Simulated scan of single mutants.
Amino acid sequence: MTYLGEGWDSTAVLVGGRWVERRPRRPEIGPQLLRESVVMPWLAPRLPLPVPVPVVVSEDPVVVRHELVPGGEVASLDAVQGRQLGEFLRALHAAPVAEAAERGVGTLRLPLERFRAEVRVPGGEALLARLDGLPADTLVHGDLGPEHVLGRDGVLTGVIDFGDLHVGDAAIDLAWALHCTPPGFAAALAETYGVTPALRERALIWHQLGPWHEVLHGNDIGDQEVAKIGLAGVVRRLEIGVSPT
């Protein structure tokens, strides 16, 4: 086995150079990994890029295993890859929501009370208020960022980590892709996907909300440096200063 690393939810090791084995870091993540083993075999054939398709190795303790998705984190993103990701997201967002729900996929429940209690910055409440009324009618990845989009030799080779898959706002999957990537990549993705002004505006809301989760995660694990970095991200994305209170 080769240790691959750990995220907020699970640890991963490479077995035999081919299989990625994942275990939950917290008890509540076990059902999430088991759900992936039900949803991903149904979803994967609908998508134009390889994705993990886990099988259950053990239910107690929970262990799942899937074939290694090729590639690594992409150092330089261009229009070719932007079109690829746009096609991928169009296919993902076209997946039937009712069929996903039958396989245990639910809606997103944001920790709004904790956000208000633990992330207190000027303009923060206004951002949270903008979350009211956002659509929840699309199957989304829910955590699409550079560490989850893989590539090699100038093309994308896969998308990983579907632990946050849920029925929600399509714009959440466009947050990083439109607001944290090179202009050529973002423009090609937007054209391929068909990004509307309303989608772009909602994607900015989700982009601004991203670091709020990092603050809560830092508090949960007792690492104030992580929380401090998250708070700096909140402030930077809101383009305001931290309240002295």
Rank of each mutant, 00 (worst) to 15 (best):
G82I: 05
V155S: 13
F162W: 06
Y3T: 10
G5R: 03
I160A: 01
R103F: 11
L85F: 00
I240Y: 00
E21K: 02
G151M: 01
L33R: 08
A136C: 12
P41D: 09
E113C: 01
L216D: 11
V51Y: 08
R237W: 09
H213M: 08
G163K: 02
S37F: 07
V167W: 11
P182M: 04
L199F: 07
E36V: 10
G168L: 12
R46K: 13
P96W: 07
G145N: 14
V121L: 13
T157N: 01
L108F: 11
A186S: 15
L150C: 06
D143E: 09
E28K: 01
T2I: 11
L128A: 01
A190Y: 06
V159L: 03
P122R: 12
V51K: 06
L77S: 03
R200E: 14
E102W: 13
R130T: 10
I29H: 12
D223Y: 01
A203P: 12
P146S: 14
I240V: 15
W19T: 14
L216Q: 11
L14Q: 02
D169N: 13
E36I: 09
V167P: 08
R18F: 05
H179S: 10
H66P: 01
L110G: 10
A12T: 02
V167K: 08
I172A: 14
L178K: 10
Q224P: 01
V56E: 07
T11Y: 00
V15Y: 10
C180K: 09
W206R: 05
V57K: 05
A190R: 12
S37T: 15
L127S: 06
W206K: 06
V64W: 07
A187Y: 08
P182N: 03
L144K: 04
V57Y: 04
R130E: 12
A91I: 00
L85I: 00
Q208Y: 05
E36S: 11
H148M: 05
V13E: 13
R109S: 15
L110I: 03
E28G: 04
I172K: 10
H93M: 11
H217R: 13
H166T: 12
S76G: 13
L127A: 05
P183V: 14
W176E: 00
V20R: 05
G145D: 11
P135S: 00
F115P: 13
L150Y: 06
I160Y: 01
V56C: 04
Q224L: 15
S76P: 06
P31L: 07
Y3M: 10
